[in-house]
Amino acid sequence: MSPFLLLLRLRLMEVFRVRFTGFFFLGLPLLFFALVGVIFSSGHPFAHRRVVMVATAADENRSSEMLVAMARFTEIRVERAATHEAAMGKLRAQIVNAVVEPLSDGSGYRLIVGGFDELFGRGLVTALPGHVELAVAPLERWGFVHYAFAGMLVFCVAISGLFGMGYNMVRYRQNLFLRKLSTTRLSKSTFVAAQIAGRGIWSLVQVLLLLALAHLLFSLPLSLVAALWTLGLTVLGLCAFLGIGFLLACFIRTEGLIYDAISSIAWPIVLLSEFFFPADELPSPLRFAAAALPSTQLVRLLRAVLLYGETDVASLLPGIAIILVWIVMTFTMGRFFFRWND
């Protein structure tokens, strides 16, 4: 056999030598395509017009009537917002097409649309019951960039966490650093804590740079409180992904395999975690799966503080709790399964 053919055979067989590599190379693209098919089975993510209803507790009855009226139109998706600021934040981010809110004198409703949706607004005003005023709000040019920014931030945090802990742990195991440390009096928790702190500091620097760029170049509205919340939530989200990376590294032994595993996790995260479109466009089982992901919760929390002006701890707490569950779960399991050497 010629050297060319021998080398070719070796290269071809590499895919099958490790069962997982074969799966990642041949099986995963098919799975991803199937997932994309399921995700977009109801059409593309912006196929529906989205309307947000400002529904405070005081206006509950009136809001309910309007919500029922809007629910008749299958071409629109209706969601609720607790405050005018939160609803307008979504309109400015161009992730909803219109805001409906009760007029303060109780005489009817105001329908607020962006400049691109004036015609849609005019049509909706005639279709809704009662007195509805139409208002056209000027929208920020970079509105959707602000929406996508949170997704971008979370993607960086997820990749940083997964690679920062998962890939590095596997590398440290392969180059025998962990084996060497196991011969010393160093405790596992000190080692893991140092890895978290090291990656955490770099992630904070990364987030600060991204925030500065988004603020200066894309006019992202940024208060000191929102910036501090962003940093805090980023650290929290990073810990969740470091935990997932840590857990992966407990079971995966080679750099190639951990790279494949992280890549295969990254794709569903991008598709399911509201980076570019809301998860309520997903079929219902996927919607619940998406809501359970730390990335989805982190995106929602970041948008709440950055775009919708939310700083009330109570309203942020459910999302924070889900991320905390991930942190506790992954690190507890990781601590149990982690071995310094094979």
Binding site: Y172, N175, L176, F177, R179, T183, T184, L186
Partner: peptide, 29 residues
């Protein structure tokens, strides 16, 4: 561990670590 020292058959080398950093790392650990 505090009473034992170990030199493995294959010792690790971290990317870019200097002789001084290695010495400091193990003294500190």
């Amino acid at each position: 561990r505090e009473r034992v020292g170990v030199v493995l058959q294959k010792e690790f080398i971290l990317d870019g670590i200097t002789v001084g950093e290695y010495a400091e790392l193990f003294a500190t650990i």
